[in-house]
Structure formats: structure tokens, C-alpha cells
Nucleic acid binder design. Structure first.
Length: 219
DNA sequence: ACCCAGGGTCATA
DNA sequence: TATGACCATGGG
């Protein structure tokens, strides 16, 4: 119940989030890899570079020269390893027939296949499943651990899968389509909220519906 | 100057 | 299972 209540508080306070900011599913996937331990503003520069070179599709990335690709990715940090990761991912993506074919896989198989790719870990896989393939998968990240552990709803040091299972179980009574929309919004709201609360010179949040979580995060 | 950001892999114990 | 090193840019 608290998981649901928190969602509604966040949602009414911050409104619709419009995640994931991308023009195509493949752009979501690229962004998911590039944003690993990286500020989103830096990812945007790299994606802008890819678009300018018309490289934002799997076959082009697959056939690009490593050094060239890495240079375009430079602003997103970790550019050498991310160039490799995007090519690893693209090799699989093209090999499996891209979105048209992959969108027909069941979520379990798709998730297992993503995790088998070098450079795709649980969080990146779940970003891709939720935001590119519209699957009801709850994305767990550092912000989620931080908010919910400070609210006393989880301990915070649980396994990724353990936490994901807990969130999905708490919200399992929603119908699939509604759950997808909710998970999509919820993850974005958590990220937005924690960032918002941590902003300096932010007005104190004493009276709004989120005062409890605001104070909790500020600990 | 220091810390962190919409993580993941690999080596080591 | 659980740490630690490593990857690297840009903003606060």
C-alpha cells in the first residue's frame, strides 16, 4: 500500500514525466547504455553527435569504426568502453532481426538475452525492457534504493532481483497495460524527486504531500 | 580541488 | 558472496 500511495503523491506533485526522451526505441536503447553512471545532459551531447553523423541505427553503429564511434561518444564519458558496448548490443540486435522480431519475444527470454550481452547489466536491461519494449518491469536504481530505504520500506542493500521482485509484487494488482504506464512514470518520478530534493537552495518542503520523503532523503 | 552522475565488468579473497 | 579497481566526461 505505501508503494502505491507514494506513487500517487509523486505523480500529483510532479505531473507527467514524458520518459524516455527519445524519438525511437533504438534511441532509448542507446541512451540506456550511454547513461550508465553518467549525467543525462552528457548523454544528450553524445546522442546529438550520433544523429549528426546519421549513426543512430544498429547497422550503422555495428559497421562504424571503433575510434570514430568512440570520438562521437566522448562527451558521455567512458567512451571507449561504451563504443564497445553499443557495438556488442547492435551485433545482437541486428542478428535477431531488430525491433520487429524482438518485440515478439516474451519478457523472460528477452531479459535473459539482454543480460547475456557484455555491457548490459540488470538496470540497463530493465530500462530497455520498460522504455523501449513496453514490458511491465520495474527499474531499480540507486535513487530507488535511497528513497525507499530512507522511508524505511526496504533495507537498501538487497540484491537487485530481490528489490525488483518486491516492487513488482507490491503493484501486481494493476492490469498489465496500466502497470506498464505506472512503472514508466514511477521510475521517472523517483529520479526526478530525489534530484529535486537534493537541489541546493531548494525551498523547504514542509507542507506538501511529500514532506515525509523530502525530510527522509535530506538525512 | 572534490564529488557525483538515470552502471557494468573483471580480478581477487 | 562481497569488496575494489577501472572506465572518463562535465556540472555543481
Amino acid at each position: 500500500m505505501p508503494f502505491e500511495k507514494i506513487y500517487h503523491s509523486l505523480s500529483s506533485h510532479y505531473g507527467k514525466q514524458h520518459w524516455w526522451p527519445a524519438a525511437s526505441p533504438f534511441e532509448v536503447m542507446v541512451g540506456a547504455v550511454l547513461t550508465q553512471n553518467t549525467a543525462w545532459t552528457n548523454v544528450e551531447r553524445a546522442i546529438t553527435n550520433l544523429k549528426a553523423e546519421k549513426l543512430l541505427n544498429a547497422k550503422k553503429i555495428l559497421n562504424a569504426e571503433h575510434g570514430h564511434l568512440a570520438e562521437l561518444l566522448r562527451p558521455s564519458g567512458y567512451f571507449n568502453i561504451k563504443a564497445k558496448r553499443l557495438q556488442n548490443f547492435s551485433r545482437w540486435y541486428v542478428g535477431q532481426g531488430e525491433y520487429k522480431n524482438l518485440s515478439q519475444w516474451c519478457t523472460e527470454n528477452l531479459r535473459a538475452a539482454l543480460l547475456a550481452i557484455n555491457g548490459i547489466g540488470p538496470e540497463t536491461a530493465d530500462d530497455i525492457l520498460l522504455y523501449a519494449f513496453d514490458r511491465p518491469v520495474f527499474v531499480i536504481d540507486a535513487y530507488t534504493r535511497r528513497l525507499f530505504s530512507r522511508l524505511g520500506l526496504v533495507s537498501g542493500n538487497e540484491d537487485y532481483e530481490t528489490l525488483r521482485a518486491r516492487f513488482e509484487a507490491q503493484l501486481s494488482h494493476y492490469r498489465p497495460q496500466q502497470r506498464i504506464r505506472m512503472f514508466n512514470e514511477y521510475h521517472a518520478l523517483i529520479v526526478n524527486h530525489v534530484k529535486d530534493v537534493c537541489k541546493k537552495n531548494r525551498p523547504a518542503c514542509d507542507t506538501c504531500c511529500l514532506s515525509v520523503s523530502c525530510r527522509a532523503i535530506n538525512l
